[in-house]
Design a protein around this nucleic acid. Sequence first.
DNA 1: CCGTATCCTACGAGATACTG
DNA 2: CAGTATCTCGTAGGATACGG
Lengths: 139, 139
Amino acid sequence: MEDGTFKSPGYCDETDEDARQWDARSDCAVRKVADRIGDKWSVLVLAYLAERGHRFGELWRRIDGVSRRVLTVTLRQLERDGLVLRTVHPTVPPRVDYALTPLGETLHVTLRGLVTWAEEHEAEIAAARAAFDERAGAA
Amino acid sequence: MEDGTFKSPGYCDETDEDARQWDARSDCAVRKVADRIGDKWSVLVLAYLAERGHRFGELWRRIDGVSRRVLTVTLRQLERDGLVLRTVHPTVPPRVDYALTPLGETLHVTLRGLVTWAEEHEAEIAAARAAFDERAGAA
DNA sequence: CCGTATCCTACGAGATACTG
DNA sequence: CAGTATCTCGTAGGATACGG
């Protein structure tokens, strides 16, 4: 995340032809997107920017808990991947606006599916957890 | 951050009614699902199990790179959340089968959306990166 | 075969202070 | 205001060895 180098050994060097359905093949794509939005804040940033453009400090204030440094890093990654557009206004004091690119918006739409799933099945998961933990406690 | 105007560690104790669209509210659900499948291996496990049931060692061999310990932890979490079913056959040598629960399958379907997105936009992201890195290098 | 128990390291990420 | 520079630390996760 910090440095420019990319991941460790190659996950994406598959040659399986019969595995292209959704398994070995997709770990590549999934891994990539997971590395991108799987961190602690990217999804939140995407969510807020989907709502409307934000200035840096504005974003920072809304996403409470994130440090300026980490927010910066997060935004840089999203910018690097073409998901977020960064606009610097040469004023004083400086002003920087962030917004979603068209590509970023398509991702956001997809992400909503995940959020929806999470919201719809929150109760089921909680129930499963409770049951599991009780079994574990009983044992 | 420390001014108490917001909530520090608790993300999911919201009372906002007007925020239910997709912003502050959804960070809760998204955060939960992200914590669940945002780790290095869960998505892969889900993918393989969606294909068909697997035994432990089978899974371990297919997802090369994961340690037994971490695979165990991953599976336990998924089991705990009701996404994966673990069946122990009281034979000797022991045999343990893993499969997706119905809930797990619904998540898998949703996840495919993300994979599809990643595959469809892989090239765009690569291009954006190249452009970004070049700008960075030029500066 | 299917794990658990330990130990250990690398990296994500918070705190803090400084710059343009 | 919008970052950058350091330092530090918690923890996910790898290696390895042992247990049922």
